[in-house]
Design a protein around this nucleic acid. Structure first.
Length: 170
DNA sequence: CCCTGATTCGC
DNA sequence: GCGAATCAGG
């Protein structure tokens, strides 16, 4: 991999956005965090305003409004998906109100947070903060933040096992 | 032990 | 210029 204009621009943006060197390396692909740091220094843009992750763990108490869904949050004008750990992802039978669309994005073609729009699936993949964190990036089902595949998981009815009946949406 | 950025130095 | 190795730290 080489530092073409495009990759340098992305590097600058991601660095300015406060992403860590390893995160940037993962986004750019085929490169290590050392390479990123080295390049950052050569470009003379080391020393950021703040490093969100390592910075002061700001108390996060005030919240004027309740998020639309539990765990949901906002990036720019895009509502991101609530996170569900891979272990917690249930196997889902095709019982879903969402019309299936064949658009599942293969692993390896996942997108970064910068690629997300209202039209892309915002299903998070991997651990936030980790270098491999990314998003599905598939084609979102109209009106939903997910592709049809992840919409099935997200909106799978929750079953109250005590009485074996549904307690939440469907 | 996980991670962070900074620096050095051979290539 | 590049980046692995290393350092110093959270």
């Amino acid at each position: 991999m080489s530092w073409n204009e495009e990759r340098i621009e992305l590097l600058k943006k991601l660095w300015a956005d406060g992403l860590s060197a390893s995160q940037i390396a993962a986004e750019l692909g085929g490169i290590t965090r050392n390479a990123v740091i080295g390049k950052v220094h050569r470009l003379g843009l080391s020393g950021r305003a703040k490093t969100p992750s390592a910075a002061v763990p700001r108390s996060r108490k005030q919240r004027t409004q309740t998020p639309p869904r539990q765990g949901g949050f906002v990036h720019g004008n895009v509502v991101l998906a609530p996170r569900v750990a891979p272990e917690e992802m249930p196997e889902v039978e095709p019982e879903c109100a969402v019309e299936p669309v064949e658009n599942v994005v293969p692993i390896g073609q996942r997108c970064t947070i910068l690629d997300l729009t209202e039209a892309t699936c915002r299903w998070p993949l991997g651990e936030p903060g980790r270098a491999d964190f990314s998003y599905c990036g598939g084609r979102a089902t109209p009106g939903l933040p997910y592709c049809s595949f992840h919409a099935r998981i997200a909106y799978q009815p929750v079953v109250d096992r005590r009485r074996d009946r549904r307690v939440v949406g469907g």
